[in-house]
């Protein structure tokens, strides 16, 4: 028992004393180990690299290590370009960012890491906002209306706030099944009717505008130029509070833990230049997403 406690204390002390850039590298390696979607040919070399990087600081702070890691992750994307989720691409950009950071002299690493995390996260949010703004069935609420009626992760919200019954959810599932498989029958259908309730439309519109609004706010806050006060304390606070609220609130809508972790690492990286309360909050948020993923609390 004493041995376990002393080891746990040593790990906590070690992480507290670990340089923040190295800590980001550790977070990134755990992210890759748990959430990278890799083709079989790349799994073994990446796992060996991850274990080596986790065990030895000298390895995980070597730019050649991150060069190889970036190449392997990019190889996985090339192999499975279309089916892979967007956050798998983000892993490559994060890995490339660490390669760039560790290529620099030690005194410049924190600054470049902080800036890299900031503009990467801002660019991700900007791309997400642009797609939503140009897609006709997003802005009028159609996307979230459909999602509330059919998506398993939104069903509880649709029942609690949208006023639809579990029976309607079941009927809609049957209709989806019919649309998928009616071609096997004598009466193939080209469309099916999904049932709803009067409160679904306003709820869908609220989620629609909340999501794009917060994403746009994050894009602005993270891409705010330094010369216009991007380093001001107020902007820094607003940036991280908004990101933490976004990740916490969006999880029920999009329970993709790997993506959440990648956003957290980018937020954490932006705190690299000076100690801040947000660093432990981001680590706690990582654990929260992991726990929530297992419990599936929504």
């Amino acid at each position: 028992m004493n041995w376990t406690l002393s080891n746990a204390r040593r790990i906590v002390d070690g992480s507290r004393n670990m340089p923040v850039v190295s800590l980001v590298a550790v977070m990134m390696l755990v992210l890759i180990l748990l959430w990278a979607n890799l083709t079989w040919i790349i799994i073994a070399p990446i796992q060996v690299l991850v274990v080596a990087g986790l065990l030895f600081e000298k390895i995980r702070t070597d730019p050649r290590f991150w060069c190889v890691m970036t190449a392997l992750l990019a190889g996985a994307i090339y192999w499975d370009w279309y089916p892979l989720d967007n956050h798998q691409y983000l892993f490559v950009y994060l890995s490339l960012a660490l390669f760039c950071v560790f290529h620099l002299p030690e005194q410049r690493r924190k600054k470049v890491l902080a800036l890299s995390g900031r503009i990467l996260l801002g660019a991700v949010m900007a791309a997400a906002v642009i797609w939503k703004a140009v897609t006709p069935d997003y802005l009028d609420g159609t996307f979230f209306h459909h999602a509330l009626l059919t998506h398993p992760h939104l069903q509880n919200i649709a029942i609690a706030l949208g006023g639809i019954s579990p029976e309607i959810i079941n009927t809609n599932e049957e209709q989806l099944h019919l649309l998928h498989f009616s071609y096997l029958t004598s009466v193939p259908v080209e469309s099916v009717t999904l049932q709803g309730a009067s409160r679904i439309a306003p709820l869908a519109l609220f989620i629609t505008w909340w999501t794009i609004g917060v994403e746009a706010l994050l894009a602005v806050l993270f891409l705010w130029p330094r010369r216009l006060g991007g380093d001001h304390r107020f902007v820094f606070l607003a940036r991280h509070i908004t990101l933490i609220l976004f990740i916490t609130a969006i999880y029920p809508l999009a329970p993709v833990i790997g993506f959440g972790w990648a956003l957290i690492i980018l937020g954490f990286a932006n705190c690299a230049e000076k100690p801040t309360i947000f660093r432990p909050i981001y680590i706690a948020l990582m654990l929260f997403l992991l726990f929530a993923g297992y419990v599936n609390f929504v």
């Binding site: 370009w81 967007n86 997400a128 797609w131 939503k132 996307f143 459909h146």
Partner: peptide, 15 residues
């Protein structure tokens, strides 16, 4: 190509 895939971050924008 579906907007959801391909690295453009178009997820959750269309049915």
């Amino acid at each position: 190509l579906t907007p959801w895939k391909g690295g453009g971050f178009g997820m959750f924008s269309t049915v």
